[in-house]
Amino acid sequence: MDLLQIDGVAAGYGNKAVLSDLTLALRPGEVLALLGHNGAGKTTALRTIAGLLPARRGTVTLAGTRVEAMSVAQRQALGLRLLPEGRGIFPDLSVAENLDVVAAANCRGAGDLFGMADVFGLFPVLQERRGVRAGSMSGGQQQMLALSLAILGTPRCLMMDEPSIGLAPNIVARIFELVRDLCVKHAMGVLLVEQNVAAAMKIADRIVIMNNGEIVFAGRPDEARAANVWHYF
């Protein structure tokens, strides 16, 4: 069964319709990269799935539960998580406080996929820097913290909006590999929106390319390489 199913979703801002009929499916343990140039509708799609923007039509289903009428918090509690672009941490709090406050709201104890100890296991540097003001860390460390905040508790589907922006290539490679491992190991679904096409192609099982709010290509990375899709970027 599909983990996340988006069926005929329409969304937009004010009079401007960005998505008219988006249909996507994400399987457990799969990384799906959503690509396309600026304004293609990728971020709008993520915002609509997360509940930040209402779907004007269509359905969003997470593991069999219809969520399109739910609030952001309700969807988040079901395991639908969004790592937002560039704003994924609480910059004025220390690293430990960031994790504490999110764990308090999202961790239940023994049944969690990721507790505080698991996060420190994934990113030992966060434990070393636990007393440091989060906003003063390097971009890579901030993104590690942001990813930790997004997965604390029990995530089932992780959406990432441009996670590579402003990061050194080796850091991007490390974070993407880790996400790929977590995805497979825990049968999570990952929906990745990226400008960095090369990096996204490396970890994606499937690629969906959007243009003007519509899907213009869907297939495996090698099919995308073979097909002439480059004019969409």
Binding site: A50, L52, V72, A73, Q76, A77, R81, L82, P84, R87, G88, I89, F90, P91, D92, L93, E97, N98, D100, V101, V102, A104, A105, N106, L149, A150, L152
Partner: peptide, 20 residues
């Protein structure tokens, strides 16, 4: 107290991480 400071620091993320 930490929740109040977190919401002050990044209300958008607070919504996404269920800090209400």
């Amino acid at each position: 107290g930490k929740r109040i400071r977190a919401v002050a620091s990044n209300p958008f993320l607070a919504e996404l991480t269920r800090l209400h």
